[in-house]
């Protein structure tokens, strides 16, 4: 019997992009396959070895009663559970439903809404089970995923920095697009992990890796409002892949209330 750690990959409500990152780790894939027994990874192979597993990488958010049951089973079967991606760590873009009436959506989309069983919200795995490690991002970063796997194989803590995106812009010499062009950018309050890609391509940060620790989102939003950006622009910026995290949610709710008051 193999003594290599048994790895399983599971998917909930998600786009598959984060699991694809594992397949995308082409340079490391052979080493990963050598170091781990990939016991369940449906995107790569139909071979499924039953649990328990040493490590589970779990993608996706919890959006149905069935999901809520299944994540508990995954937890029971897994020694070390890693939530991967914004869906699994924050509810994902589909958490936009949390501000709307999901029954209304069902009625608009499906001919027979009564066939569909869904929860009113899309929520993070940690809202349902204990999560051992959260790897953020929409999608996750390949280098960070390899780091997490390398750390698990070596039996050490993964090293995924939690500082803001600005540090990465500065290290790579990107000129701040917020200061030099007045573009609202979530970089100062967003956790690093992407390598600060968007500002290097003239776009403000979308907050893909979620709020940085102790993020002062309210001050950043106030500054934009003073500089002339209205809540109508700022609310959608904050309600994105990580919009339902408490830090982003609190401020987008405040701005939305202000917007409603002026309408």
């Amino acid at each position: 019997m193999s003594t290599k750690p048994k790895l399983a990959v599971f998917k909930f409500a998600s786009c598959d992009g984060c699991q694809l990152t594992l397949l995308d780790a082409e340079d490391e894939l052979l080493d990963i396959a050598g170091a781990l027994d990939i016991a369940c990874f449906l995107e790569a192979s139909s071979r499924v070895v039953p649990g328990p597993y040493d490590v589970a990488l779990v993608e996706g958010s919890i959006t149905t009663p069935h999901d809520a049951e299944r994540i508990r089973e995954v937890r029971r079967q897994s020694k070390y559970l890693v939530a991967i991606g914004a869906c699994a760590t924050a509810g994902g873009i589909q958490a936009l439903r949390n501000w709307a009436d999901s029954q209304e959506f069902l009625a608009a989309v499906y001919a027979r809404p009564d066939y569909i069983e869904t929860l009113a919200t899309s929520t993070a795995l940690a809202d349902h089970v204990t999560v051992d490690f959260e790897l953020r991002g929409c999608p996750i970063n390949r280098g960070q995923l390899v780091e997490v796997i390398a750390a698990l194989v070596a039996g050490r803590r993964p090293r995924t920095p939690n500082h803001g995106v600005c540090l990465d812009c500065k290290r790579r010499g990107t000129v701040c697009i917020s200061v030099a062009r007045g573009v609202p950018c979530l970089g100062p309050v967003t956790q690093s992990g992407c390598g600060a890609i968007c500002p290097a391509y003239d776009r403000g940060c979308y907050g893909c890796h979620g709020p940085a620790p102790q993020a002062n989102v309210a001050s950043l939003a106030e500054h934009w409002v003073r500089s002339g950006a209205g809540p109508a622009q700022l609310v959608p910026l904050l309600r994105n892949f990580n919009g339902f995290t408490p830090e982003f949610r609190r401020v987008s709710d405040e701005l939305a209330a202000r917007l409603a008051a002026t309408e």
Binding site: A35, V146, A154, R159, C166, K170
Partner: peptide, 26 residues
């Protein structure tokens, strides 16, 4: 008001702090 975003220290021509870490292959 401060975002603790570190921009001031990055642009400052005298700030000299760094961190040292090890990066391994798999």
């Amino acid at each position: 008001r401060c975002l603790s975003c570190a921009n001031c220290t990055m642009v400052c021509p005298t700030c000299f702090c760094s961190s040292v870490g090890e990066v391994t292959d798999l």
